[in-house]
Simulated assay, not measured.
Amino acid sequence: MLLTDIAVEHTLTPVKGGPRVTLVLHPFTNTQRDSLGKFEIVRGISEPGGKEVRRSTFVSFQQLAELYAKGVLDEFGFSVRMCPADGKYPTTNPVKKILPTSFKPGSQFDLAVQGVDVSKPASRELRTALLRTNVKL
């Protein structure tokens, strides 16, 4: 399922030359067992020895809204795995940093973000998911 409430333009530059193509990308839910129906968020971190690695975790629609409302994605440099509407991307689906300006005003996701009580602590499930990316809330 695509979350069409969020849309980001992405320009695809062919490796062997040719015309550039601009696509509109949306976050999409995973289809695998444990992460079925969840969105993938990705963060680059430095491991001991200076090696840069990417860590990802999967969050639900409501958890993604909570992370945006609390500013966690921006604060810790998270990106969201994206997919074009037709589902066809020539390589691995890209990750993009998504600003709240990319939300469709008044959409279901925008309302979910606005409805989050930021004074409440994050749920245990969300805190556990973020530990995979070395983030403690």
Rank of each mutant, 00 (worst) to 15 (best):
P105Q: 10
A7Q: 15
E47W: 00
P48V: 06
K96T: 05
H10A: 01
R81E: 10
V135G: 07
V118K: 15
G44F: 06
Y68Q: 10
N134E: 14
E9F: 07
P121D: 12
R33V: 04
V15L: 11
S123V: 07
A85I: 09
K104S: 11
R81N: 07
F76I: 04
A112Q: 03
S107L: 09
L137C: 05
D34N: 14
G115W: 04
G17P: 08
P19K: 13
P94M: 09
A122Y: 09
L130S: 06
V72D: 03
R33H: 05
S35I: 10
F61W: 09
T11P: 03
L12K: 07
Q62L: 12
P14T: 02
T22N: 10
V8D: 02
H10V: 01
D110V: 00
F61Y: 15
V118F: 03
T133C: 15
Q32I: 04
L36Y: 13
E47P: 02
L64Y: 04
V135A: 08
T22G: 10
R132S: 12
P19Y: 00
L23A: 09
I98V: 15
E47Q: 14
K70G: 04
E75M: 11
D74K: 15
P105G: 12
D5W: 05
T128Y: 13
S56K: 11
E40V: 08
L23H: 14
V8G: 01
R81T: 10
S102P: 00
T133W: 01
V135K: 04
L111I: 02
P84W: 13
L67C: 13
L2C: 03
N134F: 13
G106L: 06
